[in-house]
Amino acid sequence: MSTSTWQRVLLYAILCGVGFILLTPFAWLLSTALKSESADLFAYPPQWIPDPVVWSNFVKAWNILPFMRYIFNTFYIAIATVLLNLFFCSLTGYALARMHFRGRQFIFYCILATTMVPFQVLLIPLFIVTLKLGLVDTHAGVILPVAVNAFGIFLLRQAFTTIPKDLEEAARIDGCNEFTIYSRIMLPLIKPALATQAAFTFVAQWNDFLWPLVVLKSRELYTLQLGLASLQGVFGVNWRYISAASVIALVPTVLFFLFTQRFFTQGLTSGAVKE
């Protein structure tokens, strides 16, 4: 779309307006994190710019919660989940899309039906399974139940079906075996769909609260979500520390999304959900 100067100005104005609504809660969070011990947090009208600005809340919050560990755990869990999920979903999706075998349609429809089952329904029995496998209080216990999901299989299967047959034939004539065709030829062709699935999985796992809450018990295994939840126990009600800790917790995520944004949006652009 070609844009003139006034259009651009207007667009920026609207962007800022919407952004303002979305981010107002954060302005308060940030402002609280920067307030001193003697500032009244709940003054009316609200004081947006702290006077004086104090950085010590960040230092204290950083020292009391093992942030590096929580951030590491969260990234580790999210990334491991994404990798495993892409691997298992693409493998299954590939077979369902490109191979002929007895029961293929049946399996596909079963999987399709199960995209609808919510995690919540399974919570209690899933917990019992996880327990029996000895995975309670391990990261594996958080990761494995979501290492494959029906929606992912469905998404990637759809992507595989769009690839022309001749590519596969050519590879077969060159003497490639089935796994090589899958990994060398087919996977690169559905990169956009993989990116889509990766984005969905990453965000879901990053935000997950209930399952890690039930599975993990050792503090050193906690994710950021659980660490922040435990803040109320450790800090009680010191809003300044809670705010500071929350801001700290946001930084790595925001940076991560700033730098991987292209990957996510491009991934979604070409292929996966398109006709």
Binding site: L131, V136, L213, V214, K217, R219, A229, S230
Partner: peptide, 21 residues
């Protein structure tokens, strides 16, 4: 010694009981 964060101690205790741990 295991220090469990506040709101969840009962859920964890229950979980451990079910799992015979």
């Amino acid at each position: 010694w295991v220090d469990v964060s506040g709101g969840e101690v009962a859920e964890k205790f229950l979980a451990a009981l079910v799992g015979d741990t």
